[in-house]
């Protein structure tokens, strides 16, 4: 389940004051000296804030906030599937393909999306709009087939509905700062 660390350089990222306030609030949820516990939550915030993926400089930045070694961040980020180790499109389509979804047509959905978008599973469209991922069970088997897009589950999919779904997503995500989704949404209230 691991993915290679993408090499390359980016300018040093910096959390907004609101994001940093949320990060500090989360760190305090764990006992003194156990701040490394906040790593997974902070990586979610970092991914949502810095373009939907974790670049080496983003991971180094998170390491510096938690005062841990960069390798401690790399080894964790590459273990968990929710962290993108490569750049992604503005809208990431994560289609569930495990048993219960497969019984109700997830293969058709993936095949349709591959043909419609002209990419294979795991790839991003040339215009940088969509990334297509086939993922494992998202605990939505009662409303199969389904896919996750950011904070949302789009359920009871059918090939007939896909064009409309894609159009809506394109409208929503084709903006300068698309919402990649995070369990810990940064809101202005966090500031201060």
């Amino acid at each position: 389940m691991t993915d290679r660390i993408q090499l390359g350089t980016m300018e040093q990222p910096q959390f907004s004051p609101a994001a940093m306030a949320l990060v500090q609030k989360i760190i305090k949820r764990y006992p003194e000296g156990r701040h490394k516990s906040a790593l997974l939550p902070i990586l979610h915030i970092a991914q949502a804030e810095f373009g939907g993926w974790l670049s080496p400089s983003t991971m180094d930045y998170v390491a510096s906030i938690l005062n841990i070694k960069p390798i401690e961040v790399y080894e964790v980020a590459s273990f968990y599937t929710m962290y993108n180790m490569r750049p992604v499109g503005k809208c990431v389509l994560e289609v569930c393909r495990t048993g219960p979804c497969a019984l109700r047509g997830s293969d058709d959905i993936i095949e349709y999306l591959e043909n419609k978008l002209g990419i294979k599973e795991g790839e991003t469209t040339a215009d940088g709009m969509f990334t297509l991922k086939a993922v494992e069970c998202l605990a939505s088997c009662g409303s199969a087939p389904m896919m996750q897009v950011g904070n949302h589950y789009i359920e009871n999919l059918s090939v007939e509905k896909m064009d409309e779904v894609l159009d809506q997503l394109k409208t929503r995500h084709n903006v300068p700062n698309p919402d990649y989704g995070s369990p810990y949404p940064v809101s202005p209230e966090n500031n201060g």
């Binding site: 156990r34 516990s37 790593l39 997974l40 968990y80 599937t81």
Partner: peptide, 20 residues
């Protein structure tokens, strides 16, 4: 929050994960 790993439903893996 977990990070997307079935194995973290196993209790000792979950503890490791909660430790970051």
């Amino acid at each position: 929050s977990g990070g997307g790993a079935y194995i973290c439903g196993e209790e000792t893996a979950q503890i490791e994960s909660l430790e970051g």
